Amino acid sequence: MSLRTLNKLMATASLAVFAAQGAAAQDMDALIEGARAEGMLTTIALPHSWCGYGDVIAGFKEKYPFLTINELNPDAGSADELEAVRANKDNKGPQAPDVLDIGLSFGPAAQAEGLLQPYKVATWDTIPDEAKEADGHWYGDYYGVMSFLVNTDIVDNVPTSFEDLLKPEYAGMVALAGDPRTSNQAILAVMAAGMARGAEPGTASAEAGLQFFKELNEAGNFVPVTARAGTLAQGTTPIVIAWDYNALSWRDGFEGNPAAEVTVPSDAVLAGVYVQAISAYAPQPNAAKLWMEYLYSDEGQLGWLAGYCHPIRFNDLVANDKVPQDLLDALPPAEAYEAAVFPSIEQVNANSAAVTSGWDAVVGANVVE
């Protein structure tokens, strides 16, 4: 079922949700009119293949056609997003992002620096307390688990664990989907590698993970290139460590050329939460809030699910029979997620600090675009 079909089926239901959660119709009307006057929403770091964002953005445009979506640097990392806010504090032009989609560890840091403004969506009460900042400065949006995407036209034996990646048969094949000095996805891949060696999430996982990548690099198996769907298809990076939703989306996009397989490593099932936030300096604050309302409505959440992400309101949607069966059937088997570990914000922060500061000294591989 397409996101546009979902939008049409759920439009009436969405209005009911807003009312049920205490967002009066006139408040939404005022928000819509404010956004209409602004005429634009500026996003950043939202590649269309990530978490189904292409269809999510298309659904938002269809619902609010008066807004132009200005998409900045789709391949930016979380650190790049915050730098864009800092660099454009006094700039109300099109280079200033309104909204952010960042790794969990970046939310509290951005809040402490005064880069975020609080806002609570109408469905606020259905977002788990542990996945949101109490005053609405940031709030969880979706999560996935770390996985391997493998080009099976090139790789004969699909690795099923991080330790497998050290085997000589994978020489010049393994890459990260980001730079571990700036990309949340890559930073947490290092955490997962450390956990695979028995380390607890946090500083310990960072140290063990950095040692793993040092060994991988010294063995000649690590490719210091930011991996994308294209680099895997071309054979530059036949094995990519990435979030499952990215890996599954890329696999589908290949349509069998090349043949590809996604597997969750047996020695570490790391779940990672991303968060949404509105820039404290957003040039279009009403459009930003309207975007958040859409993302956290049933239709927005199901749009992410269609892109293989588990939306933060997933349990609430399932409990209320709002998830179409075909979307549930398209997800990987539930048992793949049973051993998933959700690190605390303190553990994520400790791991992030140790990885970003230690990568160059320990691993010594300069990851390039």
Results as ranks from 00 to 15, higher is better:
353 A>S: 13
330 A>F: 05
348 V>T: 10
320 N>F: 00
330 A>T: 02
351 N>R: 01
312 I>E: 02
339 A>G: 00
306 A>L: 10
349 N>Y: 00
333 P>D: 07
332 P>Y: 10
324 P>W: 14
348 V>G: 02
301 Q>R: 06
314 F>S: 04
318 V>F: 06
307 G>Q: 11
330 A>L: 02
331 L>Y: 05
308 Y>K: 14
325 Q>M: 05
312 I>C: 04
337 Y>I: 00
350 A>K: 08
330 A>C: 04
311 P>V: 10
347 Q>I: 11
311 P>C: 08
330 A>R: 12
310 H>R: 14
308 Y>H: 15
344 S>A: 10
327 L>I: 14
333 P>R: 02
345 I>W: 04
307 G>R: 13
318 V>M: 09
337 Y>W: 08
313 R>A: 10
322 K>Y: 07
312 I>G: 02
344 S>Y: 06
339 A>P: 00
350 A>V: 11
345 I>V: 15
329 D>N: 15
330 A>W: 05
351 N>M: 02
317 L>I: 08
303 G>F: 11
341 V>A: 02
333 P>W: 02
337 Y>N: 04
345 I>A: 13
346 E>Y: 03
304 W>Y: 15
349 N>P: 00
302 L>M: 11
323 V>Y: 11
336 A>V: 02
334 A>C: 00
340 A>Y: 02
318 V>K: 14
342 F>P: 02
301 Q>D: 09
321 D>Y: 06
331 L>H: 08
342 F>M: 13
330 A>V: 01
300 G>N: 03
313 R>S: 12
330 A>D: 09
335 E>I: 02
308 Y>R: 13
343 P>F: 06
345 I>Y: 03
333 P>S: 01
352 S>Q: 13
335 E>F: 07
324 P>T: 03
336 A>Y: 01
345 I>K: 10
351 N>P: 04
332 P>G: 05
312 I>S: 03
339 A>I: 00
302 L>P: 13
331 L>G: 03
338 E>I: 01
318 V>E: 12
310 H>F: 12
342 F>R: 13
332 P>F: 12
304 W>A: 15
310 H>N: 09
312 I>V: 15
315 N>S: 11
351 N>E: 13
331 L>T: 05
329 D>V: 09
319 A>D: 14
348 V>S: 10
307 G>K: 13
348 V>A: 11
305 L>N: 11
307 G>L: 12
313 R>Q: 14
349 N>K: 12
336 A>E: 07
326 D>C: 05
305 L>K: 14
351 N>H: 04
350 A>S: 14
335 E>T: 04
322 K>D: 08
343 P>K: 01
321 D>F: 06
323 V>N: 10
333 P>H: 01
308 Y>F: 15
346 E>S: 09
338 E>L: 00
311 P>N: 07
300 G>S: 02
303 G>E: 12
326 D>R: 05
324 P>M: 09
319 A>I: 00
322 K>M: 15
331 L>D: 01
332 P>A: 10
305 L>Y: 14
312 I>Y: 06
322 K>C: 02
308 Y>E: 06
346 E>Q: 12
317 L>E: 06
315 N>W: 04
330 A>M: 08
305 L>S: 09
308 Y>P: 06
309 C>W: 00
316 D>V: 01
329 D>F: 03
315 N>G: 03
305 L>V: 03
302 L>H: 07
300 G>I: 05
303 G>I: 13
351 N>V: 03
317 L>Q: 05
332 P>H: 06
326 D>Q: 14
347 Q>F: 11
320 N>V: 00
329 D>P: 11
326 D>G: 01
329 D>G: 09
